[in-house]
């Protein structure tokens, strides 16, 4: 029972935190651009507004179910990662699988999103999916190498184990123990968060908002909450993998906040790659970095 309560709280907390971070990022971006920007709670307001809209359309079964896929996938990733180390009630479902499971279950939501986009029949949505998949298959390469280097180096695939191995002070964090793998993973983190210069999926100048082009009202609110949840889950995952995890709630919030700001800042000062440039960059630069640590681990 305690577990279920924890799961519910985790989901709600992660959703709120994700929406709030989104609001903050909009403000930060605006300030960098020299604007006032919306208030930090704007995302909550948008979400509620979309949720309450009643008139809407759908294009078929997969279109209908895609937001469910999206949310399910996001929550699964969230629940597979322990939140606060030492506080076993916040480990949620992380006992059920290791880092490989997390890597693969991340695709669940992506696939659902892609199916919905495909079912919508809108060419822009599908172009975005085609770009997104091509890019995903590229950054997953460096991300996988980084994860394997870290997991093999620490001799465990369990995220809990990876976090525990980083508890001996700040220098035991993987970002210091595996600097090259971390660099590779952190570059891969940018396209994961759809940040510029890798923002080819939502590219607003070309393909309005990419996959959810045809989505509106409550469907869109589901999509957005899925995105907020997924974003938070990825933050927690990266904090656990590279930044020593969190030993208390404050540390969790601070670390995820700082990590969240990284793509926001990078994003606002970079222009966008063309799709093939992005793919090629991801194949070579972060992969080469991550490989250095992999070779180190092998030797």
């Amino acid at each position: 029972m305690g577990n279920i309560v924890s799961i519910v709280l985790t989901i709600l907390g992660a959703l709120s935190w994700g929406l709030l971070l989104g609001g903050i990022s909009r403000t930060v971006t605006a300030r960098i651009h020299g604007r006032m920007g919306p208030r930090v709670t704007q995302n909550f307001i948008d979400m509620w507004k979309l949720f309450k809209k009643t008139s809407s359309i759908h294009h078929g079964g997969m279109f209908w179910m895609a937001p469910m896929f999206r949310i399910t996938g996001a929550i699964c990733v969230l629940l597979m990662v322990p939140l606060v180390i030492g506080n076993s009630i916040t480990y949620n479902m992380s006992f059920a699988g290791d880092i490989f499971l997390v890597i693969y279950i991340m695709f669940f939501g992506c696939l659902g999103m892609a199916l919905g986009a495909g079912n919508s029949g809108h060419p822009y949505a599908v172009i975005a999916v085609s770009r997104g998949l091509a890019q995903m298959s590229s950054y997953e390469l460096s991300f996988s190498i980084a994860v394997v280097a870290i997991a093999v180096g620490l001799k465990t695939f369990r995220i809990e184990g990876i976090v525990e191995a980083q508890q001996a002070g700040i220098l035991s964090w993987n970002i210091f123990r595996f600097p090259f793998a971390s660099a590779g993973a952190l570059i891969a983190f940018l396209p994961m968060q759809m940040a510029y210069p890798f923002g080819i999926v939502l590219a607003p100048q070309e393909i309005p908002i990419g996959p959810p082009t045809e989505y509106s009202s409550r469907f869109l609110s589901f999509m957005f909450s899925g995105r907020a949840l997924f974003g938070t889950a990825k933050l927690i995952l990266f904090v656990s993998l590279l930044f020593g995890g969190a030993s208390n709630w404050i540390s969790l919030l601070v670390k995820t906040f700082l990590l969240y700001m990284y793509p926001v800042v990078v994003s606002s000062v970079f222009p966008r790659f063309r799709t093939e440039q992005s793919i090629r960059f991801l194949w070579f630069v972060p992969t080469s970095l991550a490989l250095v640590d992999l070779i180190r681990v092998m030797l």
Partner: peptide, 17 residues
Amino acid sequence: MGTWNAWMVGLMVMGLF
């Protein structure tokens, strides 16, 4: 090095969905 509980993962995914 690793753990995998397919049944629990299955329940989680189906339950959430």
